[in-house]
Amino acid sequence: MLKLDPGGDLLWAKSFGDDKAQSTTSIAMTDGGDIALTGDVSGRVDLGTGTTDSARPLTQPEEDSLLHGFLVKFAP
């Protein structure tokens, strides 16, 4: 996630995951100015409440990890 100034210059940038796959599938701004994201994550990710891990299930030991969906809201 990043924030640009009106001229398009980078003000800040933040990443949330490790070297596994993370992707945002939807982004929206609420009437109150919050940003809502949905997406998929594999591996470790910290969306602001501590690190979570999409651990490998016992029923699929040959897989590195699974994709898990997320929904997160960030306040300005």
Rank of each mutant, 00 (worst) to 15 (best):
A75N: 13
P57C: 07
T52F: 03
D46G: 06
R56T: 08
T24A: 15
L47T: 03
G33L: 06
Q22R: 06
W12C: 07
F16Q: 03
T25E: 09
K20V: 02
K20D: 12
S54M: 09
D31F: 03
L67C: 11
S54T: 14
E63V: 13
D34V: 08
G8F: 02
P76V: 10
V41L: 07
A36W: 09
D53G: 00
L37G: 00
G50T: 12
L37K: 02
A21Y: 09
I35C: 04
R44W: 11
G33V: 06
G43I: 00
P6W: 03
I35M: 10
K73R: 14
E62R: 13
T52A: 09
G7D: 14
A21R: 07
D34E: 12
A55T: 05
L66G: 13
L66Y: 07
D9Y: 02
D5F: 02
P6I: 02
D18S: 05
D64M: 11
I35Y: 02
K3R: 13
S65H: 12
Q22N: 15
F16C: 02
L58C: 10
T52N: 05
D53K: 02
K73G: 07
G8M: 07
E63H: 11
T51L: 12
W12N: 04
S65A: 15
M1C: 07
D18H: 06
G69V: 06
T52V: 15
K20E: 10
S23P: 01
S26F: 11
L37S: 01
G69M: 07
P6T: 09
T30A: 08
F74V: 07
T38W: 08
K73D: 03
D34H: 04
L58M: 14
I35P: 00
K20H: 11
L10P: 01
G39F: 01
F70W: 07
L71A: 14
T24E: 04
A21F: 11
S26W: 11
R56V: 06
V72S: 00
G50W: 06
S65P: 00
L4P: 01
E63L: 15
G8H: 03
Q60F: 14
V72P: 03
F70M: 04
K3E: 15
